[in-house]
């Protein structure tokens, strides 16, 4: 008896032989993979960036909580800190002293306010981070009602509307990708089924000479895997270089820094890897499914 790896080697060899002896089939199946994967790549790139945008905007979702002027003692800060954390949806509350507040103010409004250094007229404050943009409004209201709070503000309605829109786009995109995936699997397994149909005689002969179902399936599955990988190559290159080109032309962002694009490395590479794995998986599933059908045909 011979080892598993020797057999695997034979299967890979026979898969390659078959790939080259059925060149037309290899090309037609591969191009089915290519077409769907190009669309798939476009959506992966889009969905990945939308996720990033939403994340960016959401990370700006901090509530600025300004305390009353009478809140000056460390114990008061501590109790306020724990009150804030006790609220639902609050993830984090960072203390910002009145001096730090002044620095931020100077940064925003200009050096003219540097005069106040050492005697900040501003109140002490907290930056509160909430778990998601959807909850920011209710949390802000709750904080305003806390005793000792002078005011609580966040970016406002326009920001939360933006998050809503991006969320919709993201979910819609995800649904579209799911649908596309389903279509791709269907299309590819069908193409492979048609090409294997021409070889059902071959499968029957293999059983005639004593090849087990498993033994018959292996080379077809390896073949399917390589068809998937070949088919993924072009979309992979297109996705990476296309994205890199886009990234460079756009200067890495769309309009504002809130819409910062993901960098080609690693994102473009990740998309590539996903495409190749996806192509391979679909190829394996498709041909396994197709061979199963013909294995059952004859005893």
């Amino acid at each position: 008896m011979i080892s598993f790896f020797t057999v695997l080697g034979r299967h890979i060899k026979s898969a390659f032989l078959s790939l080259f002896r059925h060149v037309a089939m290899t090309i037609s199946s591969s191009s089915a993979v290519t077409v769907t994967l190009i669309l798939f790549a476009a959506f992966l790139l889009l969905a990945g960036n939308i996720s990033k945008f939403t994340g960016n905007i959401e990370s700006d979702f901090r509530i600025h909580v300004v305390l009353n002027q009478d809140q000056m003692q460390q114990e008061q800060f501590d109790s306020m800190h724990s009150q804030l954390l006790a609220l639902e949806h609050v993830e984090k509350a960072e203390f910002s002293s009145k001096d730090q507040e002044l620095e931020l103010y100077i940064e925003e409004k200009g050096e003219a306010f540097a005069l106040y250094r050492g005697d900040s007229p501003l109140g002490n404050a907290f930056f509160v981070t909430v778990d998601s943009g959807d909850n920011i409004e209710t949390v802000t209201q709750q904080i305003k009602n806390l005793p000792g709070v002078s005011n609580a503000t966040y970016g406002g309605d326009s920001v939360s509307q933006m998050v809503d829109i991006l969320n919709t786009v993201r979910i819609g995109g995800l649904a579209f990708v799911a649908l596309l995936t389903f279509l791709a699997v269907f299309l590819i397994s069908n193409t492979i089924k048609i090409s294997i149909y021409a070889r059902n005689q071959e499968i029957a002969i293999m059983r005639n000479v004593g090849a087990t179902n498993h033994y018959i399936k292996m080379p077809f599955m390896i073949e399917g895997m390589f068809i998937g990988i070949f088919g993924a190559l072009l979309p992979c290159l297109l996705a990476y270089f296309g994205y890199e080109y886009l990234y460079n032309t756009m200067g890495g962002q769309i309009f504002t820094s809130a819409f910062r694009l993901l960098t080609p490395i690693p994102f473009g590479v990740e998309v590539c890897v996903v495409l190749v794995l996806f192509g391979a998986l679909v190829g394996i599933l498709g041909s396994s499914h197709a061979v199963n059908k013909y294995l059952k045909w004859v005893r």
């Binding site: 293999m206 059983r207 004593g210 090849a211 087990t212 179902n213 005893r299």
Partner: peptide
Amino acid sequence: KHKKVPIYRRNIGV
């Protein structure tokens, strides 16, 4: 069984 048929066929030549 269907999947045992090929193994049986190793005993015979057709």
